[in-house]
Design a protein around this nucleic acid. Structure first.
Lengths: 336, 336
DNA sequence: TTGAAAGCGCTAACAG
DNA sequence: CTGTTAGCGCTTTCAA
């Protein structure tokens, strides 16, 4: 059995309260007694029991990260950034990975009920008003990453601007018939990217043609941001024959890759026959030569942790919304 | 303030012990009282406090997973499998991601000291004798995944066999001058793969030529299983001019991809000029047409969790070693 | 500065 | 079957 605070107290000939002060660097302790206690701790190889501390302090030094496992590289990179930053704060990370939609709710519910964590990071997942309220009610700090909701702190990328720039890039190269493949429109980023796309068209006096737009609403369970969805969407365009679009802004790289496969299947060439621009800059993008919009993933992850820690320690009551900018990464898929 | 067990007891007009029995599905309780209590719980929206439960039960329902973030797809896939399985057991997962070598030790130490977790999964990371002893001493269940150590449970892939088969594949196609690019030899899988490579050579009466072998020992900090290391290693071969090997077994896909880049830089063609076979079957492999050895990642992750749970609940004292087989995935990089 | 004692919220042994 | 009570191992008043 590992030593407890009582063992240390006895060995050092002091009360447990004093031992507690010693290990918590309380100023209310004489250096001499502290040293004596430290020696006893060494000898007994004592380590405070984290769970007991959590209970007494009402603080777990743990945060939860709820994150979908669809996203591949984006997710890995973000998690890495979060993990690194959190370690600096001496916090632990409980990972809840969502692969089925309803699990999200389960996990959200659990984080607020079980009081196992001091805060939560919700990544790339939409939150309902219901849960948003629950969080504000329960006082459990939460920050959304790559997502957004009224009154909740959020770190995201300027999706409108990103989509706008992507579309504009296609325009600048000389395309007129620019289509878009989007994620499911119930996804917030998907909505915003559509907006950016429309904005770019409008600005260049290009008529928004419904036939040139497909949201991957057929992808059940998921948010449509996956390869299969992109492939299927592209098939639709391909069936338009001569009227098929010659340039496409695809709302995520992984969809774009699916679309590219569909294009290759019918022996059309990229960018010669069809130009493609993606969004995310996942690792695969460089291997398939996909021009895309890069998100500053590291920065987003780190800022998210910093904000969450700030909320945990200082309970600020302002609202924190930060948008990062995307930058275009030009590769081969658009020619130009 | 959330309701406590006392609130429930008072409201239901019973003792807290009875409430505890009710929420823990004890058989020692009358259905009638249980119903009464359940009603009170509903009304008060009571949820047991996990941390308090952990302290009283001496059980946290949490495991730690210590895993390197180098590995890309392998890691994501494995984590996904682990996460899914663990949820079935109603356990939570604390993620410790190692990006700097010394962190591994820190995390290992913490898991045994802090008593925050009921068990640990150590993935793709070597453990020292020192720590192996600490674990057996502390009674904290641990299982190694994609790693191995005397007396510790482990789930891995048959690296020798995999490397053997990869090399043999090259032989079968008709190559004689087969080189190998390995990870750092201090890495256990790296050692085994070298062994498999040598075995295949021996069996086919091919002399092991030291000039045809490079372990990525120059990759400081990491284990050499990364793109840059593969690139650098390939450069060495390329400098051999006409004596350069025409077929290479690369110990990991990510290194193989680095090597392929080096090859393309000097305008040599794969597989025409140089054939490459990798190991892992990461997602990128299919995009670059890399022939490689696939590991059954899902199965490994699930089995690891099952074994760990078994250890937590039944403290078996047998030693568990399981090796999975690799299968070859033929793509374009070897011709043939 | 320090010790004693009262929690933190729950489980589990014990007595009835 | 159920209530009472003694922990689980620590933090934090409150006096001294």
């Amino acid at each position: 059995m590992p030593a407890t605070i009582y063992d240390v107290a006895k060995k050092a000939g002091v009360g447990i309260g004093t031992v507690s002060r010693a290990i918590n660097d309380s100023p209310q302790i004489a250096l001499k007694t502290k040293n004596k206690i430290m020696r006893a701790i060494k000898e007994l190889n004592y380590q405070p029991h984290t769970v007991a501390q959590s209970l007494a302090r009402k603080k777990t030094n743990t945060i939860a990260c709820i994150i979908p496992f669809f996203t591949g590289y984006f997710f890995v990179e973000l998690l890495r950034a979060i993990q690194r930053k959190i370690t600096e704060y001496k916090y632990d990370l409980i990972l809840y990975s969502v692969d089925i939609a309803h699990k999200k709710e389960t996990f959200l519910q659990r984080t607020i009920e079980e009081r196992r964590v001091d805060g939560v990071l919700l990544v790339s997942l939409e939150i309902t008003k219901d849960y948003a309220d629950k969080f504000t009610h329960s006082q459990l700090p939460i920050v959304l990453v790559d997502s957004n909701f009224t009154n909740l702190d959020s770190i995201s990328v300027d999706n409108i601007e990103g989509a706008y720039l992507a579309t504009k890039h296609l325009v600048d190269i000389g395309y007129k018939n620019i289509a878009m493949i989007d994620g499911q429109l119930k996804s917030y980023p998907a909505k915003l990217r559509l907006e950016g796309y429309k904005k770019a068209l409008r600005e260049h006096n290009i008529y928004f043609d419904e036939n040139y737009f497909v949201a991957c609403d057929f992808a059940n369970e998921s948010d449509g941001f996956n390869k299969q969805a992109g492939y299927t969407a592209m098939k639709q365009f391909l069936q338009m024959g001569d009227n098929m679009p010659r340039a496409i802004f695809v709302s995520s790289d992984i969809q774009a890759i699916g679309a590219m496969e569909a294009i290759k299947e019918v022996n059309l060439r990229i960018p010669k026959d069809i130009a493609i621009i993606g969004f995310d800059d996942i690792e695969l993008a460089q291997y398939v030569g996909l021009t895309t919009m890069r998100q500053p993933i590291m920065e987003m992850g780190e800022l998210a942790v910093e904000r969450l820690m700030n909320k945990i320690y200082n309970q600020p009551n302002d609202e924190f919304k930060q948008q990062f900018h995307t930058t275009i990464v030009v590769r081969a898929s658009c020619g130009g």
